[in-house]
Amino acid sequence: MNPDKQTPGEGYLQGEWKQDSVPAQKSLVTYSLYNIKFSCDSFLLKISTVSKVNYGADTCMSKGHWDEYIRGTYSQRRDTLHIKGQFCNADGSYKNEQGCFRFGDYEEYFKVHKQSDSLIRFVSTSNVIPINAHLIKRTSCIPKPL
Protein backbone atom coordinates (compact mmCIF):
# COMPACT_ATOMS: atom_id res chain seq x y z
CA MET A 1 0.00 0.00 0.00
CA ASN A 2 1.30 3.49 -0.85
CA PRO A 3 1.85 5.96 1.99
CA ASP A 4 -0.33 9.07 2.17
CA LYS A 5 2.63 11.33 3.09
CA GLN A 6 6.24 11.74 2.05
CA THR A 7 8.77 9.83 4.10
CA PRO A 8 11.29 11.97 6.01
CA GLY A 9 14.36 10.93 4.01
CA GLU A 10 17.88 11.38 5.38
CA GLY A 11 18.23 14.22 7.89
CA TYR A 12 21.85 15.05 7.04
CA LEU A 13 20.99 15.58 3.34
CA GLN A 14 18.08 18.01 3.84
CA GLY A 15 18.82 21.29 2.08
CA GLU A 16 20.62 22.57 -1.00
CA TRP A 17 24.07 21.29 -2.00
CA LYS A 18 26.29 22.77 -4.71
CA GLN A 19 29.41 21.69 -6.58
CA ASP A 20 31.59 24.69 -7.53
CA SER A 21 34.27 22.98 -9.61
CA VAL A 22 35.65 19.65 -10.76
CA PRO A 23 39.28 18.50 -10.58
CA ALA A 24 41.26 19.77 -13.61
CA GLN A 25 38.17 21.40 -15.12
CA LYS A 26 40.23 23.85 -17.24
CA SER A 27 41.83 20.94 -19.09
CA LEU A 28 38.58 19.02 -19.65
CA VAL A 29 36.71 19.27 -22.96
CA THR A 30 33.36 18.78 -21.24
CA TYR A 31 32.38 18.79 -17.56
CA SER A 32 29.23 19.11 -15.45
CA LEU A 33 28.54 20.84 -12.15
CA TYR A 34 25.76 19.63 -9.87
CA ASN A 35 23.30 21.50 -7.67
CA ILE A 36 20.92 19.27 -5.71
CA LYS A 37 18.09 20.09 -3.34
CA PHE A 38 16.84 17.42 -0.95
CA SER A 39 13.41 17.83 0.62
CA CYS A 40 12.25 14.89 2.73
CA ASP A 41 12.51 11.86 0.40
CA SER A 42 12.53 13.97 -2.80
CA PHE A 43 15.24 15.72 -4.80
CA LEU A 44 15.60 18.31 -7.55
CA LEU A 45 18.88 18.05 -9.45
CA LYS A 46 20.32 20.69 -11.77
CA ILE A 47 23.21 19.56 -13.99
CA SER A 48 25.07 22.51 -15.55
CA THR A 49 27.29 21.36 -18.40
CA VAL A 50 30.13 23.28 -20.03
CA SER A 51 31.63 22.07 -23.30
CA LYS A 52 34.30 23.29 -25.68
CA VAL A 53 32.81 21.04 -28.38
CA ASN A 54 29.59 21.82 -30.25
CA TYR A 55 27.44 18.68 -29.98
CA GLY A 56 24.33 20.10 -31.64
CA ALA A 57 22.12 23.12 -32.30
CA ASP A 58 23.24 26.27 -30.52
CA THR A 59 19.64 27.04 -29.61
CA CYS A 60 20.01 24.20 -27.09
CA MET A 61 23.70 24.50 -26.26
CA SER A 62 23.86 28.26 -25.74
CA LYS A 63 27.53 28.62 -26.73
CA GLY A 64 28.70 25.56 -24.83
CA HIS A 65 26.66 26.02 -21.62
CA TRP A 66 23.41 24.25 -20.82
CA ASP A 67 21.36 23.04 -17.87
CA GLU A 68 19.34 19.89 -17.36
CA TYR A 69 16.90 19.25 -14.51
CA ILE A 70 15.76 16.03 -12.85
CA ARG A 71 13.24 15.54 -10.09
CA GLY A 72 12.32 12.41 -8.21
CA THR A 73 12.85 10.47 -5.02
CA TYR A 74 15.87 8.95 -3.32
CA SER A 75 16.71 6.30 -0.79
CA GLN A 76 19.88 5.43 1.05
CA ARG A 77 21.13 2.03 2.14
CA ARG A 78 24.35 2.03 4.11
CA ASP A 79 26.74 4.29 2.14
CA THR A 80 24.88 4.08 -1.19
CA LEU A 81 22.44 6.76 -2.31
CA HIS A 82 19.96 5.71 -5.01
CA ILE A 83 18.26 8.53 -6.89
CA LYS A 84 15.50 7.86 -9.36
CA GLY A 85 13.49 10.42 -11.26
CA GLN A 86 12.54 12.04 -14.53
CA PHE A 87 14.10 14.79 -16.60
CA CYS A 88 12.01 17.93 -16.31
CA ASN A 89 11.97 21.59 -17.31
CA ALA A 90 13.44 24.32 -15.07
CA ASP A 91 10.00 24.91 -13.53
CA GLY A 92 9.68 21.21 -12.62
CA SER A 93 7.12 20.44 -15.32
CA TYR A 94 7.30 17.27 -17.39
CA LYS A 95 9.83 17.39 -20.25
CA ASN A 96 8.68 15.98 -23.58
CA GLU A 97 10.74 14.35 -26.33
CA GLN A 98 10.83 17.45 -28.56
CA GLY A 99 12.92 19.45 -26.06
CA CYS A 100 16.69 19.78 -25.95
CA PHE A 101 18.91 17.02 -24.54
CA ARG A 102 17.85 14.06 -22.44
CA PHE A 103 14.30 13.20 -21.46
CA GLY A 104 12.50 10.38 -19.68
CA ASP A 105 13.85 8.35 -16.77
CA TYR A 106 17.02 9.05 -14.79
CA GLU A 107 18.56 6.66 -12.29
CA GLU A 108 21.92 6.84 -10.56
CA TYR A 109 23.75 5.31 -7.60
CA PHE A 110 26.32 7.23 -5.56
CA LYS A 111 28.66 6.22 -2.77
CA VAL A 112 28.26 8.95 -0.15
CA HIS A 113 31.20 10.18 1.92
CA LYS A 114 30.13 12.75 4.51
CA GLN A 115 33.25 14.81 5.08
CA SER A 116 31.65 17.32 7.49
CA ASP A 117 28.20 18.73 8.26
CA SER A 118 28.54 21.03 5.26
CA LEU A 119 30.64 18.99 2.81
CA ILE A 120 29.69 15.73 1.09
CA ARG A 121 31.40 13.74 -1.65
CA PHE A 122 29.13 11.81 -4.02
CA VAL A 123 31.00 9.21 -6.07
CA SER A 124 28.91 7.99 -8.98
CA THR A 125 29.02 4.35 -9.98
CA SER A 126 28.92 5.43 -13.64
CA ASN A 127 31.25 8.47 -13.70
CA VAL A 128 34.89 8.85 -12.69
CA ILE A 129 34.65 12.48 -11.55
CA PRO A 130 33.42 12.78 -7.93
CA ILE A 131 30.93 15.45 -6.91
CA ASN A 132 32.28 17.47 -3.98
CA ALA A 133 29.26 19.44 -2.81
CA HIS A 134 29.01 22.01 -0.06
CA LEU A 135 25.89 23.00 1.80
CA ILE A 136 24.26 26.21 0.57
CA LYS A 137 21.13 26.15 2.71
CA ARG A 138 19.96 23.73 5.42
CA THR A 139 16.24 22.87 5.50
CA SER A 140 14.01 20.61 7.56
CA CYS A 141 11.68 17.96 6.26
CA ILE A 142 8.00 18.82 6.53
CA PRO A 143 6.28 15.79 4.94
CA LYS A 144 3.65 16.75 2.37
CA PRO A 145 0.57 14.71 1.51
CA LEU A 146 0.91 12.63 -1.66
Rank of each mutant, 00 (worst) to 15 (best):
V53C: 10
K37S: 13
F38D: 03
K46T: 11
C40M: 06
K46Y: 04
K46N: 06
W17D: 02
L28K: 10
F43Q: 01
A24S: 07
P23F: 01
S39W: 03
V53H: 12
F43R: 00
K26P: 03
W17N: 02
K37G: 06
K18D: 07
S27P: 01
Q19D: 03
K26I: 06
S27F: 10
A24F: 07
V53F: 13
K18W: 05
S21W: 06
L28E: 04
A24W: 05
Q25N: 10
F38S: 01
K26E: 07
Q25L: 07
V53P: 02
V29Q: 11
F38C: 04
S39K: 13
C40G: 03
V50S: 14
F43S: 00
L13C: 05
K52Y: 05
D41E: 14
K18L: 09
G11R: 15
Q25C: 05
K52A: 06
L44I: 10
Y31I: 06
K26F: 06
I47E: 12
I47V: 12
V50F: 13
T30S: 14
G11M: 11
K52N: 08
V53Y: 14
V29C: 08
Q25E: 06
L44V: 13
W17P: 00
F38V: 08
L44Y: 11
P23R: 04
S32I: 00
Q14E: 12
Y34K: 15
G11D: 15
S39M: 12
N35S: 13
Q19G: 03
K18P: 01
S21I: 08
L45Y: 01
S39T: 14
S42R: 14
K18G: 04
K26G: 08
S21F: 06
S48Y: 08
L33Q: 05
S51P: 04
S51G: 07
S27V: 07
A24K: 11
K52M: 08
T49F: 10
F38Y: 15
G11A: 15
Y12N: 14
Q14S: 14
Q19C: 06
L13V: 05
S48Q: 09
S51V: 05
S32N: 14
F38E: 02
Q25P: 02
L44T: 11
L45W: 00
L44N: 07
